[in-house]
Design a protein around this nucleic acid. Structure first.
Lengths: 346, 346
DNA sequence: TTTAGCACTCTAAGGGTGAGAGTGCTAATC
DNA sequence: GATTAGCACTCTCACCCTTAGAGTGCTAAA
């Protein structure tokens, strides 16, 4: 059996209606609302076919139909028409960024807020993690008598800091000198690219402080790519969805979402700037059944810089979410580029 | 009518039992479990008195009694015996801090996690906001061709950064020089203490860069004291409490907790290192009925440095929470002091 | 003053019922 | 051969009723 045009229309109608109402969709409803020019009986027959093909499901014998996982997949891949973003929404988004924002963290937060605002689902946004982030500047700063702080500025504006124990009898000038050497050797290099040759060069010039420099390098390595700031918000919006009237579900979901590792996992698989939809079981995490995740990458200077995502029930308004996400990543990329490289070069 | 010892015992028993079971407490239960040496009938009479005094309430005529707001207040003020913390729990807390922790942020996060772990309620922890934080180090770092990053390390380990437009034709050496002057003038001074005299001194030495330095100073001022990192966690734990089986409540609560302003408000009123219990209506925030908040300050060098709090239902195990909080703030103060001032001076 | 006994009240859980929505099948129609 | 009207059937959900259970207040006795 194949999916002819009428079947497509019916599948489309079922998915759209179910997304809108959260109620199983009956043949009568489709005939009435979507005027396909055929009677409910015909639609019933077609729906029985679609069920046999695994695209629809029946909660129980005498209920309407509900899209199956495959049904959603087919809808997302072939049937939906992302409606784009209205002018008002565009304005809203741009307003949101126009307000004076201080630093990347603020931008990320605002992005998350507006994302959940516009979609009514939970939003997750990872701050730029950059692939790979390159060191822009390293600075050792005396802190207490026996501790120093290592400051590392990355080329995309992130700043990391670590505290380090100082060896005895090291002076502020020593620190400045070490900073200087580290800068000369590391600037423009990704953390993960720090290889033995560079290490040897550094040790060569700083042989006196070998042990301390080892500590510094360890601290640098501990920065790694992952575990940047992650924004999560809009949870309460998602609870308005009827699928979350079950408290047990809310609990397991919340306990997952509180773990940053989990959020990282959700976003990590995004490897380019496209919009990616993972439906139900495709979100491979136990305890998060019946949910879908839409992720999209944003870029800085053309390279993937970070990911934002929307988490909602499988019955998610995919078309809308995809529209919002693609416009939003575009804007976010633009804003970050302007911010980090200046208006002129952006 | 006054509260004699027997009434106290009965009130105590009602509160304890209700906290433990979340069920209205009947006279029979009290007679059986708390062996006061009197019959249920006597207890009934006493309970009627306590109700008349406003310390107990009846959900409906034929249910047991439940503490009223005043009842909880009386219990917290006069009747409860904080049980202290068991040795295992002490060990657990100390283990938690012993693990290698990187920076203040990590300590705050871990504190929040263990706090909600030990109490089963939601935990809120504000990173040290310090009164006032003093500048430890200022550093200007060239970023892109026409932007520089201002790094400010505060004496309690926080690091702030801001991006700034550079005037044309400024060199890296210029930046280094400006950094040096700023450091000399600002080190040890609180952001809010930067007064005109200091400003004049700086301008005097850096007259050439006057406009740029103005920008730097503005950036510094924008750091301000408030809005440090706030940890919030353990929400899903709180949902196990039967009072949150009502989804509507969970939603309003979540929407409040997602606003950092709200969390700040919750913690802000704490002005010393003591443990403070606010019950029900005392938490003056609409939309958060039936909840109590326990806050406590932690100190660094004897001065209030930050606040942690527990948010739970009015039927909260106050005795336990107070015990945990007072031990935890003690430990947290110790850990932070060691971290920021070094083991020897702590 | 305390206690036993008892009638009374209220809730929450269980079970039965009927309306409503939707289906699948069959036979008639285009 | 595809489509449709008609109809019997199924299943859920909301509603009502009933009852068990827990707890009370009152009264009278100890």
């Amino acid at each position: 059996m194949q999916i002819d045009e009428r079947k497509q229309k019916i599948l489309w109608a079922v998915v759209e209606d179910y997304i809108a109402t959260a109620e199983p969709v009956g043949s009568r409803t489709i005939a009435r609302k979507y005027k396909l020019g055929v009677s409910p009986a015909t639609i019933r027959n077609e729906m029985a076919d679609l069920e046999e093909m695994g695209l629809l499901e029946q909660p129980h014998t005498s209920a309407g139909r509900v899209p199956s996982y495959l049904g959603y997949r087919y809808y997302v891949d072939f049937l939906m028409h992302p409606p784009g973003v209205t002018d008002e929404e565009k304005l809203l988004i741009q307003e949101n960024y126009r307000a004076k924002v201080q630093g990347v963290g603020e931008v990320i937060k605002r992005t998350g807020q507006i994302l959940s605002e516009l979609t009514s689902y939970a939003a997750v946004v990872a701050a730029p993690y950059a692939s790979p982030p390159a060191v822009k500047h390293v600075q050792l700063v005396p802190f207490t008598g026996d501790q120093a702080m290592v400051l590392v500025v990355m080329d995309q504006g992130a700043v990391h800091h670590r505290l380090l124990d100082l060896p005895p009898h090291i002076t502020e000038e020593d620190l400045a000198k070490i900073s200087q050497v580290l800068n000369a050797k590391l600037r423009g290099i990704g953390i993960s690219e720090i290889k033995l040759t560079i290490l040897h060069e550094i040790y060569g010039e700083l042989i006196r402080y070998r042990r301390f420099v080892t500590g510094v390098m360890e601290a640098l390595r501990s920065i790694g790519p992952g575990h940047e700031q992650i924004y999560l918000g809009g949870l309460f919006k998602m609870l308005n969805q009827p699928e979350f009237k079950n408290l047990e579900r809310v609990k397991t979901l919340l306990s997952l979402l509180e773990q940053e590792d989990f959020l990282c996992d959700l976003l990590a698989s995004q490897t380019d700037g496209s919009v990616r939809v993972r439906i139900g079981r495709e979100v491979s995490h136990s305890g998060i059944d019946g949910c879908s995740v839409v992720t999209a990458g944003y870029t800085i200077g053309g390279r993937l810089a970070g990911v934002l995502g929307v988490l909602g029930p499988t019955r998610m308004d995919y078309a809308r979410v995809v529209s919002v996400m693609s416009y939003l990543t575009e804007q976010l990329s633009r804003v970050l580029e302007e911010m980090l490289y200046g208006q002129k070069t952006g």
